[in-house]
Write a protein that binds this DNA or RNA. Structure first.
Lengths: 211, 211
DNA sequence: ATAGACTTTATTGTATACCAAATTCCTTCG
DNA sequence: CGAAGGAATTTGGTATACAATAAAGTCTAT
């Protein structure tokens, strides 16, 4: 989207994720417009997006409040992400071309280097990890799947501080990615799907344990 | 949502589904505001929703056009719906209570009556079918799943005229529903999931054949 | 003092007007 | 015929105003 709307989205989202607006807080358009330094119009756009992503909920009559994610809801989100992203991996395995595969390899090399550094470079890991998954979704060539996944991916990641990732977790992720690349190279959809399912499920448990 | 916004949404959507705005047609906010008899503000809201549901796509720079759904994309939509709604059925089987189950039974009785009438009452069938699936999604108790499914369910149905449903198809649907109810009554998630997967998959082929 | 009715305020949805930026289309000139 | 340049379109955004409705506060009667 566009400048002011994106800015409002990012601002409001970080308000929620940083805990400045705890669950249950009422969010009003005027107040948010003030905070973000834009008018109500882009704030409304941002609120619609955040509502679709369940960051905020509406009361019986249209007032908006910060949503409260239960543990069960986070688990359900990981389940859905696992289903959908496994499906994306299966599609990608059947459709990926040499160029995209090479990009994945390169991406995972940077990720692996970040993990194996004397002091693991978590920021780079997160950035490359995100790119890796985005490339798979792109290779799946399903606009609808991409739209849905965009609304649920990467959400809980933000809540974790970088320090909470153990070196073993990071290494395991890099290993999973390498195996995914193998599955893609073999164009084996079932393999890719299975590896991705385990990859996401492990992320869920790592997330739960770190909480 | 609210009056004008919903009206704009419904109007624009029916323009697209009825073929009055064929794929590739450019949609401008001003023109749509004129057609719908509302101002640009609610039209913009409606366009965002339709964009999220992939009814419309944006060009490189923000102009909007009616999307063209390929056969493959329709198939992918059914696949996603099958995955997600099967998952919903599994969750519902584990969570449904006696009251919700009774509502499902009642709903399917009305549906079955509509099917078995001398002249099948397709309008009632469609209405009850929709309610049946909505009740299952509600029983699944997953706000996120409900949000996602709301954006992909019932879309292709509208393209079919009532006359294209054969009596055999309608009866088969009623039978599937009855088996789903059995699975729910037994609280057997695997059973419910399997029946729902077949139910959606069959709907896809019926849709394809009727094209 | 408190329950209930009434009034005030807050908030969202919508309309309207306007402007800026970017893109597209059309005209004109070489 | 092709290219440059300007005019028209279109969207994103701002600002303001107003209606409807829900929430909050206040007042009154018992």
């Amino acid at each position: 989207m566009s400048r002011a709307s994106d800015q409002a989205y990012a601002n409001i989202r970080s308000l929620i994720l940083a805990g400045d607006a705890p669950p249950g807080t009422q969010l009003t358009e005027a107040q948010l417009a003030d905070i973000c330094g834009v008018s109500r119009t882009p704030v409304r756009d941002a609120l619609r997006r955040l509502e679709a992503e369940l960051y905020i909920v509406r009361s019986d009559s249209q007032r908006m409040f910060v949503a409260d994610w239960s543990r069960e809801e986070v688990g359900e989100m990981f389940t859905l992400r696992g289903m959908l992203e496994s499906h994306a991996a299966a599609r990608a395995a059947a459709r990926i071309d040499a160029q995209a595969l090479a990009n994945l390899v390169e991406c995972n090399q940077r990720l692996t280097a970040a993990v194996e550094a004397a002091v693991p470079d978590v920021a780079t890991f997160l950035a490359e990890n995100r790119r890796f998954h985005e490339q798979i979704i792109a290779a799946a060539q399903s606009p609808r799947l991409a739209t849905i996944l965009a609304s649920i991916v990467e959400q809980p990641v933000v809540r974790r501080t970088a320090a909470r990732y153990t070196r073993a977790e990071l290494a395991r992720s890099a290993h999973d990615h390498a195996e995914l690349i193998e599955a893609f190279a073999a164009h084996d959809s079932d393999w890719a799907e299975a590896v991705m399912a385990g990859h996401i499920r492990r992320a869920f448990h790592a997330f739960s344990a770190a909480k």
